[in-house]
Design a protein around this nucleic acid. Structure first.
Length: 559
DNA sequence: GCCGTTTTCGGCCCGACTGTTTTCAGTCG
């Protein structure tokens, strides 16, 4: 670990201290102070190094004298006596058990101190042997649930969320560039380049002046690095990007045209064809360039051969950002800060959508809060040139288990748009959950259906719904289907995008940002939308300001 | 451990669900 530690690294250590405190029986509030500080550091726009250098740490909410001292020491030295002491109390493998849903600090303590279980592997063994029932407070149902969760963890082992993979690969690319100045064209490849929602292998490609055997594969820590000479760069990048099914399709196409494609190059008989980049390679196969996001072996080669590849949107097509939270509910920044940050990112409109009243845990807005926020939006809009930038009044309204939105109609009318989302009762059966969402979609006040499946990548499976029926209903009622861009969600899943388009749905890419820094998560939503073959014409927030205003107005008239 | 005072202590997001209880603690969103 390189010193000094950055914001993300120190935040991780603060969370570790918090978890260890809880597992040592400390009061939960003390642990929460560490979690809050970690969260606020991450949400802060200023990097930790600057906060420390300028003595501004105390200005971060939740950082007092004691935490300031710990953060500075962690930043500078990579550890702290408190952390060292806590680490002596129990092995890190005990903390892994906290990852299992249903296991909090209290139950993990019980498992560790009473049943002497110190790791997920030991826990699995104990569950299979039925040993949890020996312990008062634990039972057979929990045992079954734990085994299911361990299976889920096993299935997702080795996968990373995109923003995590991106950060690690960028750091690896920087280290590579610094250690070998002769390298050129260093590119992040693999599943990350394909815009996948989860990344399996970390992979880089680079060009070197000369490489023995033309392409060499090196492994540096957990990153595979393909190094090729200039003549083989296209083939190296293609193979490092994948996926295997796409590559198999290309090899078959090469074979059908009297060529041979391998990891080492492209041949016609004994003659090797130069492929300095991917463009040249696809050209040699008489194909238009296939964007990396489409390379999944799902018929893209056939589409390319027919000249029927979809025109993909790109980040610069985004004109506005909707579904963001502010400090009116559980966001970290003010309405004005969020709006201004959206504007400085080149967008023309911002739609606030804080949590609604039934999301008490997230500080959901009561009627008075809504009135206050609407006045604030009004004042803000007076400040901006109406033709250049506008703030729209939205809300992320919880869908109750009845399918109703959680404000009366008279109040719902006051909003410019409404994102309807499920945050509770995730375990209804498929029929009931589908009926619940269908009711919300049929509600004339609903503008956008938020994170349709409720999945949390690497954490929680989607709830049971009939996606086809829900998409049909969205198309019928003109409800926009959200592509939630947050790396934990990326929901609607890209595998459904083509079907949603086919059914006539409009899509919307929303960051679900809880801080200014999270506005940049939009890129991951764009990546999966590209992967799903979504054109900009079908994305709500690719509309320019006037078209969007008119669309909202028409939608409101239709209520 | 932080924070805001009813300002140096006392409260800290809070309601619902779940499982293991037999009236509630732990966990989650």
């Amino acid at each position: 670990m390189d010193l000094p530690l950055d914001t993300a690294e120190v935040s991780r250590l603060l969370i570790e201290i918090g978890q260890r405190l809880e597992l040592c029986g400390e009061i939960p509030f003390k642990a929460r102070a560490y979690y809050t500080a970690a969260e606020n550091l991450l949400a802060h726009t200023m990097p930790l190094a600057d906060l420390v250098a300028q003595g501004k740490l105390r200005e971060v909410p939740g950082v007092g004298e004691s935490l300031m001292e710990k953060i500075v020491r962690l930043h500078k030295t990579g550890t702290h006596p408190t952390l060292d002491y806590l680490r002596e109390q129990m092995p890190a493998s005990v903390l892994d058990m906290l990852e299992i849903p249903g296991l909090g600090p209290k139950k993990v303590m019980l498992l560790h101190y009473t049943l002497h279980i110190s790791s997920v592997a030991e826990l699995e063994e104990a569950c299979k042997a039925g040993r949890l029932r020996d312990c008062k407070g634990l039972g057979g149902t929990l045992q079954k649930k734990i085994l299911e969760s361990i299976e889920f963890l096993r299935k997702t082992k080795g996968l990373s969320l995109v923003h995590v993979a991106d950060e690690r690969l960028r750091e690896a690319a920087d280290r590579l560039a610094a250690s070998r100045p002769a390298l050129r064209r260093i590119v992040l490849a693999g599943a990350l380049r394909r815009g996948c929602e989860l990344v399996d292998g970390l992979c880089l490609v680079a060009e070197a002046p000369a490489v023995e055997g033309h392409v060499a594969v090196e492994t540096r820590q957990d990153v595979r690095v393909y190094v090729s000479d200039a003549q083989h760069y296209g083939v190296a990048l293609l193979h490092a990007t994948g996926n295997p099914a796409h590559l198999a399709g290309l090899r078959a196409r090469a074979a059908s045209r009297g060529m041979r494609l391998t990891e080492k190059g492209l041949w016609r008989g004994d003659e090797e064809l130069p492929v300095a980049d991917e463009q040249a390679l696809y050209e040699a196969l008489r194909l238009p360039f296939i964007e990396p996001e489409l390379r999944e072996g799902r018929g893209e080669i056939e589409l390319a051969a027919k000249g029927a590849l979809p025109a993909l949107l790109c980040e610069s097509d985004i004109r506005g950002i909707l579904h963001c939270h502010t400090d009116f509910s559980d966001g970290h920044n003010t309405l004005a800060e969020m709006a201004e940050a959206v504007r400085t990112r080149g967008c023309r409109y911002f739609g606030v959508a804080d949590h609604s009243q039934s999301a008490g845990y997230a500080g959901g807005l009561k009627e008075d809060d809504i009135r206050e926020q609407h006045r604030a939006v009004g004042r803000l809009n007076e400040k901006y040139d109406a033709a250049a930038f506008r703030v729209f009044k939205g809300i992320e309204s919880d869908i109750r288990d009845t399918g109703a939105l959680d404000y009366p109609d008279a109040l719902l009318k006051e909003f410019d748009f409404i994102v309807a989302s499920i945050h509770s009762r995730l375990n209804l059966d498929k029929q009931a959950q589908t009926a619940r969402i269908l009711a919300a979609v049929a509600n004339p006040h609903t503008t956008i259906l938020g994170h349709i499946s409720g999945r949390l990548l690497l954490q929680r499976e989607a709830y049971a719904i009939d996606t086809e029926e829900v998409l049909k209903a969205c198309a019928k009622h003109g409800v926009v289907v959200e592509i939630n861009a947050h790396p934990h969600r990326l929901d609607l899943d890209w595998r459904w995008h083509a079907r949603a388009l086919e059914l006539g749905c409009m899509l919307g890419i929303n960051p679900d940002a809880h801080a200014v820094t999270e506005l940049d998560l939009m890129r991951w939503g764009v990546a999966v939308a590209r992967k799903g073959g979504v054109p900009k014409e079908r994305v709500l927030n690719c509309m320019d300001l006037s078209a969007f205003s008119q669309w909202l107005a028409a939608r409101k008239r239709g209520r």
